[in-house]
């Protein structure tokens, strides 16, 4: 009994540590990456290659005064940033990094991650609503409609995969794809010829779910100043920032597990955690790349894309796969 409790504590500490480390160093990676893309060095003063920059940022954010605007809903204003960070950390618990490295494997892992991912939309809503700022309010309305419309195609795609593998356990999902690149869900097979399209849909939806450019309508600094976190300073802002990066890691991990064979090697050799990390960081790099290349979409363009293109295609893919699974 005491061993299980110890296990849980260790798992939680590692999950928090991994999330915080990633959040801090992805900010650094993003800024260095943006610098590289824009032909400037990026942060390079604090420590070698600017590696101490996240530490400096953290100290700065922590020592700043937390200003609560007059007329704001105090309780909700404080809760919102925590709600942005917490679900991401909890989601780490169920993600299998390799055969053995998983905090708590459960048979409804996919469901759990999606349940918590929905909460991050909630935090944006609360932040915009409680800060009593018109820009914040508009941003939160946008973010909610965005989250609602992008969860639908995302879940339909997941249902397709669950149907193919017959399990919701993330570990078993990876196990079903083991053996090499030809077994990955990304590669079309006889029963699921549209999987590359499904991968694309899922990738776009993860960008939208994590509020990343070109779908960062909740922030939209050129029209809504800073969107939902306009009124946040100090660590409140810091938590939103870290939450965004933690969510990116979750998104990349999900893509890796669902489509790219998790910890499996493309050639079926030496499966292990390194393959998993390599895949998620390549995906995260592509997220960064896209952010610094594309302009922002409009809110109606975003909703049109989801309801008129992504949802019909993913539904068609679901029906096609269901039919073909019956045939083959």
């Amino acid at each position: 009994m005491s061993l299980t409790i110890l296990n849980v504590i260790i798992a939680v500490v590692i999950a928090i540590g991994f999330a915080a480390l990633n959040a801090a160093y992805l900010v650094w990676a993003e800024r260095r990456g943006a610098g590289r893309i824009q032909r400037r060095p990026g942060p390079n003063v604090n420590g070698p290659l600017g590696l101490l920059q996240p530490l400096a940022d953290g100290i700065k954010l922590m020592t700043k005064q937390l200003v609560i605007p007059g007329g704001a809903d105090k309780a909700l204003f404080m809760v919102a940033p925590v709600l942005a960070m917490a679900p991401a950390i909890i989601s780490f618990v169920t993600i299998p990094f390799s055969e053995s490295i998983v905090a708590h494997s459960m048979n409804i892992g996919v469901l759990m991650i999606f349940a918590f991912a929905s909460l991050s939309g909630f935090s944006i809503l609360l932040a915009g609503w409680s800060s009593r700022n018109k820009y914040g309010m508009m941003a939160s309305v946008r973010a909610v409609s965005q989250n609602i419309s992008y969860e639908v195609p995302m879940l339909i795609t997941v249902i397709t995969i669950v149907m193919m593998t017959g399990t919701m356990d993330l570990k078993e999902l990876v196990a079903a794809q083991s053996g090499g690149i030809w077994n990955w869900n990304l590669i079309p097979s006889l029963s699921s010829p549209l999987m590359p399209v499904a991968f694309l849909i899922f990738f776009i939806c993860s960008l939208a779910e994590t509020n990343r450019a070109p779908f960062d309508l909740g922030e939209a600094e050129s029209e809504l100043v800073a969107g939902f976190h306009t009124e946040y300073g100090s660590m409140g802002f810091g938590l939103f920032f870290m939450g965004e990066y933690a969510n990116i890691v979750i998104g990349a991990s999900l893509i890796t597990i669902l489509f790219l064979g998790g910890w499996g090697c493309p050639l079926g050799l030496f499966p292990g955690v390194w393959w998993f990390l390599l895949k998620i960081y390549m995906l995260i790099f592509s997220f960064i790349w896209i952010r610094w290349t594309f302009p922002r979409t409009t809110i109606y363009g975003l909703l049109n894309l989801s309801w008129k293109i992504l949802i019909p295609i993913s539904l068609f893919n679901l029906l096609l796969t269901a039919g073909l699974l019956k045939v083959f």
Binding site: A34, I37, Q38, P214, A220, W292
Partner: peptide, 16 residues
């Protein structure tokens, strides 16, 4: 202008 539309990178190229 491109920054108004949310794309930050072209500004850096243009300024160069």
């Amino acid at each position: 202008f491109v920054m108004d539309l949310g794309g930050f990178t072209p500004l850096m190229y243009a300024i160069q």
